[in-house]
C-alpha cells in the first residue's frame, strides 16, 4: 500500500525539497505548526493589526458621516467642517475617508497575515504603511499651512499611522533578512 506522506529523512522527500522553492517564497508559511517565527515579531505584527483597527474605526466613522451628509463635530479642536468640506477631502470624487478605510483594512489584513508568518504580507505591509505615512505627512501639511484648520479625526488618523510606521519599522529592522 502506497502512502502519500513521507518519513523524515526519506530520500525522495529530500530530493523533492531540493528541487522546489520554499513555499514561504510565495508568501505562504513554511510550516505553520512549527512556531518558528520569533514571538516578538508576532507580537509586533499583532500590535500593528490592533492599531490598524483604531484607524479603521476612525475612517469608517468619517465615511459614514460623509456619505450620510452629516456635519462632523469637533470636540477638541474646531476645524472639522473646514477640513472635511474642503477640496482636499475628496480625490477625484472619492472621499479620503473611504480611501482611509481601504488603507487601514489592508494594513490590518497584511499585519494579521504577517503575524501568522506569511512573509510576503510583511513586505506588502511595509509598502502600504510607507505610502500611508507619506500621505499623512502631506495631509498634515495641508491642514497646517493651506486650510489653516485641524480636524481631530484626521489627527487621530495621523497618530495611528505614525504608530503603525514605527511598529513596522521596528519589526522590519529587527527581523528582515
Amino acid at each position: 500500500m502506497c502512502e502519500w506522506t513521507t518519513r523524515s529523512g526519506d530520500v525522495s522527500a529530500m530530493s523533492l525539497q531540493a528541487r522546489t522553492h520554499s513555499s514561504s517564497d510565495y508568501g505562504v508559511p513554511d510550516n505553520p505548526e512549527a512556531g518558528a517565527q520569533p514571538r516578538k515579531e508576532v507580537r509586533l505584527y499583532g500590535a500593528a493589526a490592533l492599531v490598524s483597527l483604531a484607524g479603521l474605526a476612525d475612517s469608517i466613522y468619517l465615511t459614514a458621516e460623509h456619505i450620510s451628509g452629516r456635519s462632523v463635530k469637533c470636540t477638541i479642536v474646531s476645524g472639522c467642517s473646514e477640513v472635511l468640506s474642503s477640496h482636499y477631502a475628496t480625490v477625484r470624487g472619492i472621499p479620503l475617508a473611504v480611501i482611509g478605510v481601504a488603507a487601514y483594512f489592508s494594513a490590518f489584513s497584511l499585519a494579521t497575515l504577517a503575524a501568522f508568518d506569511y512573509k510576503l504580507a510583511g513586505t506588502l505591509l511595509t509598502i502600504v504603511v510607507g505610502v500611508m505615512f507619506l500621505t499623512t505627512l502631506w495631509l498634515l501639511y495641508l491642514q497646517a499651512f493651506v486650510i489653516g484648520h485641524f480636524c481631530q479625526f484626521c489627527l487621530l488618523s495621523a497618530i495611528v499611522t505614525t504608530i503603525l510606521t514605527v511598529l513596522v519599522a521596528i519589526v522590519r529592522k529587527a527581523f528582515s533578512g
Binding site: 479603521l56 478605510v101 483594512f105 489584513s109 494579521t112 497575515l113 501568522f116 506569511y118
Partner: peptide
C-alpha cells in the same frame, strides 16, 4: 492555523 488569519480578516470585514 493556515485559515485562522483569513477568518479573523473576514470577521473584521463583517464587523466593519
Amino acid at each position: 492555523k493556515r485559515t485562522l488569519p483569513f477568518l479573523i480578516i473576514l470577521a473584521v470585514l463583517g464587523v466593519a
